[in-house]
């Protein structure tokens, strides 16, 4: 391993090293601590200018109640789930199919198609903004969940296809030849061989997609207008305008928005890291 490992025989050095790392980490996450600390405060505490000291009273619950009862965050939160979960599922299905074909079947234009998927995935979102918005308006989908779901599915299918293609292409070729020699049709190969074997990739992909879609802000403000369909990211941005100085409530809401991706991340960390490095591309 590089860098050279501090040997087990020097426990003090190891301890000291770990301590240094944790100090760097504390600095790295200082902004997060600030938000957390503030989410614990009372409004009076904030008003009194106590930003960095210990809260005079732990008011996390009060702040969360304020978030749930006095703002629409709970609704936004549900909206986000309604948008994110089906989009993620659809992308997984579509990209497994396209990735499989791109990985296992040769046809003219395959490389061009592959390049298009990569290029589309890296494109600045603003490049699609006007036509997509126009398309959703003319389909009558503007300001509905459908608009966001369709867009996310289309856009993420590019990235997810690359991801699945690379994973499926890395499976041993002879496995597919064996299945063909036994008379399995392409559909049967997909269902009986590919899907069981790509489960780790699907796990990694699903958490990445969940995070990407959950955290989207741009399309939320381009394709929606009313509170009934707004996801949490847009809701949080609004909240900052409405609750300008109530940093304790804003902080609590910020933590609330971050919960699903952070929880997903800690539950499926291995998959998340594997996914990012496997795909090596970020949507």
């Amino acid at each position: 391993m590089y860098p050279r490992q501090i040997p087990e025989t020097r426990p003090v050095a190891r301890l000291a090293y770990a301590a240094c790392v944790w100090i760097v980490l504390a600095v790295w996450l200082l902004p997060v601590f600030a938000i957390m600390l503030t989410a614990l405060r009372t409004l009076e505490d904030v008003m009194a200018g106590n930003y960095w000291g210990w809260p005079d009273r732990i008011n996390l619950w009060g702040n969360l109640v304020a978030v749930f009862t006095q703002t629409d965050m709970l609704r936004y939160f549900l909206n986000s789930l309604i948008i994110t979960l089906p989009s993620t599922a659809l992308v997984l299905i579509l990209s497994t199919m396209t990735g499989y074909v791109l990985a296992r079947h040769r046809f003219p234009g395959a490389t061009l198609l592959f390049a298009t998927f990569i290029a589309g995935n890296f494109m600045p979102q603003q490049v699609f903004m006007i036509p997509v918005r126009d398309l959703m308006v003319s389909l009558g989908l503007y300001d509905t969940f459908g608009a966001l779901i369709i867009f996310h599915v289309a856009f993420q299918t590019g990235f997810a296809t690359l991801f699945m293609r690379n994973f499926i292409a890395a499976l041993p070729n002879e496995l597919f030849q064996a299945a063909r020699a036994e008379g399995a049709s392409p559909g049967q190969v997909l269902v009986q061989i590919v899907v069981p074997l790509v489960r780790p990739a699907l796990a990694a992909l699903s958490i990445l997609l969940f995070t990407f879609i959950w955290n989207d802000y741009f399309w939320a403000i381009v394709l929606t207008q009313t509170d009934a369909v707004k996801p949490v990211t847009a809701g949080l941005a609004n909240l900052r305008g409405e609750w300008a100085s109530s940093w304790n409530v804003i902080s609590a809401a910020t933590l609330f928005v971050a919960i699903p991706p952070v929880v997903m991340f800690f539950l499926m960390q291995r998959h998340f890291v594997a996914g990012l490095t496997m795909g090596a591309v970020k949507g």
Binding site: P172, E174, A178, A181
Partner: peptide, 10 residues
């Protein structure tokens, strides 16, 4: 029926 060098077991 074919038997592969790498066995190609599922």
């Amino acid at each position: 029926a074919m038997v592969f060098q790498s066995y190609a077991l599922y």
